[in-house]
Lab assay of single mutants.
Amino acid sequence: IGSLMYASIFGNVSAIIQRLYSGTARYHTQMLRVREFIRFHQIPNPLRQRLEEYFQHAWSYTNGIDMNAVLKGFPECLQADICLHLNRSLLQHCKPFRGATKGCLRALAMKFKTTHAPPGDTLVHAGDLLTALYFISRGSIEILRGDVVVAILGKNDIFGEPLNLYARPGKSNGDVRALTYCDLHKIHRDDLLEVLDMYPEFSDHFWSSLEITFNLRDTNMIPGSPGSTELEGGFSRQRKRKLSFRRRTDKDTEQPGEVSALGPGRAGAGPSSRGRPGGPWGESPSSGPSSPESSEDEGPGRSSSPLRLVPFSSPRPPGEPPGGEPLMEDCEKSSDTCNPLSGAFSGVSNIFSFWGDSRGRQYQELPRCPAPTPSLLNIPLSSPGRRPRGDVESRLDALQRQLNRLETRLSADMATVLQLLQRQMTLVPPAYSAVTTPGPGPTSTSPLLPVSPLPTLTLDSLSQVSQFMACEELPPGAPELPQEGPTRRLSLPGQLGALTSQPLHRHGSDPG
């Protein structure tokens, strides 16, 4: 009997000691992992102490058991019943959930998450997105703005933001810190809205009876308010094209079509300037034949640059190039080494500058006005007194259609001029006259002087055409309008007829 009692007592005591040691061994194993994590990542002392304290409290609170892992091991129907039991206190005593059906309560219970916070733990920081609604079931918390405590909340209090009033989550206007050990039930806004969409009859009752104890939403960050730039940057990543407008005076608003859609830094370009900076079609017209890549860069430059609305530039004389043409100036200075066709295309550029300027006046029909002061630039669209967005969009579309028509007509005119030049060069190729044979009589004449090349004649003739079109064909006081194609086609051969009437002889060394 004594040996039996000794064996039973010894066996029970050893089993008890073994169970104690097993729990202690698990605790030390998990604690060792936490300390190894702290050492590996070199976490500083204040945060390291918070980690160790939280682990110790969580171990004593749950005995080292992962409740979520245990809950996920059950089937979904059983999980709903378990969640309904775990959140029964909240669902029974909170006013917004009263009167809900059994199915609605089960769906809500599945969406709730339980959070346990030790003292000093910050649940929400200032500036964080308010993605959830919090219900306090135990403990107390404090809300701070800077170093000032603005509120202390306790059991059955609710904090967050009214989700039904805002389409997008706002930002917190303060820090939420736990004063004691707290148990909180939180539900994400997407989950709550999903359940309320499934039960629309409960939705009206819920929003009407929901009383948020403390609204954390920062009202200064609401979209459309003066301080909402940061919020707009976070939620409006896919922005449309940006529009900046110059201020319109009362006198300017009476004149229709007073602005032109141009790229940034293009205030001095012609009315047909689009795409790359520098001139019509993204580059100076005089350098068009020598740089074919300008047409390839036109599309990307047009689509990537934001639109700006600026006044037209001052008018340019008909014979003056659009500006920024070092290529043609070098050719004029060193005409001995340049291609003979460069002079002809220089005359073509003069005609283009004249036609572009006159067509700009035809479509816009307003006098040039000086540029406004820099303080009046970049007025935002949302400022008071601005035109409605639809009106601005319609004006932009009208300007775009005008620019497209202008570009089409300029292309047709350019093709006409090039065809005339090619026809003239085919009839009378460039050549130098040879020395004529002296006559049989004693009164022999001296050799004839060489005839100037055709490109120079073409430049003079085209300059005469531009001056003739600019000065004589337009009646005084009438708006400057571009001439039609047949009129220009008839004027060019008439001007060139006198020049080509002389018999030109080919030089023996000319390969053409």
Rank of each mutant, 00 (worst) to 15 (best):
Q502V: 09
A398Y: 05
R368S: 10
C369F: 06
L499R: 12
A398D: 12
P486L: 15
T426C: 08
G288V: 09
L399Y: 08
I158Q: 01
E407W: 04
P438E: 10
I222F: 12
G477H: 13
R395S: 12
G268S: 10
K186C: 13
N350Y: 01
S461P: 07
P200E: 06
Q364F: 13
P372A: 10
F354E: 07
P256R: 12
S244F: 07
P289I: 01
R246E: 08
A434N: 09
G268C: 12
L481W: 04
G347E: 08
G174W: 03
D397H: 04
I158C: 11
L399G: 03
H205S: 14
A267F: 09
T456E: 10
N215E: 02
L492W: 08
T180R: 03
G360I: 13
F206K: 01
S346F: 09
E407F: 01
P340E: 11
G512N: 08
D460I: 01
R189I: 14
R237G: 12
L377T: 10
S303Y: 06
L133Y: 01
I222K: 07
G477E: 09
D175N: 07
L130W: 01
S137A: 08
S444C: 09
P450C: 05
T131Y: 13
F214T: 03
L231N: 11
K333L: 12
P388Y: 14
G497Q: 13
F345M: 12
Y166F: 15
D297E: 09
R237A: 11
G146V: 03
L454H: 09
P374G: 09
L366I: 14
G257V: 08
P372K: 10
S382W: 05
V149I: 12
G170C: 02
G477R: 13
T180K: 03
F214K: 01
P326K: 03
T456P: 08
P271G: 09
L341N: 07
P256L: 10
I136N: 01
V435H: 15
P300D: 08
L406N: 04
L492C: 14
D128L: 02
G477Q: 13
K251Q: 10
Q364T: 13
I136R: 02
V149P: 08
L504V: 10
Q419D: 06
P380D: 08
R138W: 03
Q464A: 10
E472V: 12
G224V: 10
R506S: 11
D128N: 03
I136S: 01
P226W: 12
L427S: 07
K333H: 10
H505I: 13
P388F: 13
S286G: 13
S291R: 05
L399A: 04
S272I: 12
N173D: 06
D204E: 11
L184N: 01
L165Y: 15
A132F: 13
S382I: 13
M221A: 08
L179M: 12
L457P: 01
R423W: 11
A398M: 03
A498D: 14
L496F: 01
T437E: 12
P482D: 10
V451N: 13
S284N: 12
T373H: 14
L421E: 06
I187A: 02
I141L: 10
S272P: 14
V451K: 01
D197S: 10
E332L: 12
L418A: 09
S501V: 10
S394N: 15
L377I: 08
C369Q: 13
N164S: 12
P200H: 05
G282I: 08
L377Y: 13
S225E: 12
A371N: 12
F235K: 10
D204S: 11
G508I: 11
L133W: 01
R266T: 14
Q424N: 11
P482A: 10
G439Y: 06
L130S: 01
A269T: 08
S172Y: 01
S208W: 03
L396N: 06
G282A: 11
I136M: 03
L179Q: 09
R368L: 08
K242C: 10
R387M: 12
E232F: 08
E258Q: 09
P300M: 01
E365Q: 09
L184T: 04
G356I: 08
W207Y: 12
G257E: 13
F345W: 05
P322S: 11
P321G: 03
N164T: 09
E472A: 08
E393C: 15
S225V: 11
Q502G: 11
G174D: 03
C369M: 06
H205N: 13
T456W: 05
S272D: 04
G127E: 03
G508N: 11
F206D: 01
R266I: 11
P493R: 10
L196D: 01
L481N: 10
T436M: 10
G323K: 11
C338S: 09
G257H: 13
R168A: 12
A344K: 09
E258T: 09
R177C: 06
P384Y: 15
D330I: 11
E254N: 08
C369A: 08
S334K: 15
A344D: 07
T426W: 14
L421G: 05
R423M: 05
P264R: 10
G174H: 12
Q364A: 14
L504S: 10
G324Y: 01
P315C: 09
P455V: 08
S209G: 10
D128Y: 01
F468G: 10
S260V: 07
C471Y: 14
R405N: 01
T253W: 11
D128G: 03
L193N: 13
P486M: 15
D157H: 06
V428I: 11
C182P: 02
